[in-house]
Amino acid sequence: MTSIGTGYDLQNSVFSPDGRNFQVEYAVKAVENGGTCVGIRCKDGVVLAVEKIITSKLLKPGANKKIATVDRNVGIVSSGLIPDGRHFVSRARDEAASWRSTYKAPIPLAALAGRLGGYVQAYTLYSSVRPFGVTAIVGGWDSAGALGVDGQVGSGPSAGAGGKIPGAKAGGPALYMIEPSGSYWGYYGAATGKGRQTAKSELEKLGLASGNLSLEAGVKEAARIIYVAHEDSKDKEFELEMSWISSMDGPTKGRHQEVPKDMLEEAEKLAKTALEGEDEEETTAPEGETMEE
């Protein structure tokens, strides 16, 4: 890096003459080495998936979860420094709880992403702190129906002032990605971590903007993309962790939950066969030396 030795990267919140904040860029580097995370916004829900590199054989399989639940309807997964990610999740939980105590209703995803973006950005402003070493994917489902206020006991007037608008629809699936700079965007498909480039190009192929991908298909795609993105670091073993959020009348009833075990295994099996298929196409050499999975 040409910037090294110029002195502008020694302190947080300092601009270089060409308008860069190097500490933030270094934080992005920390993220780029993290396990690949993928989020897909499907028509009837959101899927989150993460490649969990197994750093020791002594770690218990299935333990040390990387996807966290924030409010009932929100999940967060992040690449980069794990403790930073934990603190980020803890802040998200506080924001969601504080929203509930003020407004007596779950926090909308857009508001949560905004607050988290603001929080992360504050860590780029002061010399006494360092930026967050995580890029986080925040997924959730904003309830589409007229949601009761927490603690509500009656149904209120059926029409007129304070009444309900028949057939009114709001909410739906939401997916945001928050970067170390504090900037955040809403996505159809989001990827971060080591395999993000591969994952992004795979996500683009899904045509998510048309809104046709179902949640069940999204689970399978997310698993496949994590497997494809892992190809470049094949020497390392990994574990796939996935969670999902559906609409109120979908399989998770508007809640953020782990993808059921049998469904996860099914998706993994499909991902592996899809990969084998690709390998055969690439190495149609007479020896037919396919890599063993």
């Binding site: 979860k65 966290a68 409010d71 009932r72 939980r93 509930r100 927490d150 603690g151 509500q152 809640r255």
Partner: peptide, 18 residues
């Protein structure tokens, strides 16, 4: 209503861990 909100928040925090 207060108790209901209390139980609501209890349920949310109970589901943080999976």
């Amino acid at each position: 209503q207060y108790l209901d909100r209390l139980l609501n928040s209890l349920d949310v925090t109970e589901n943080y861990s999976s």
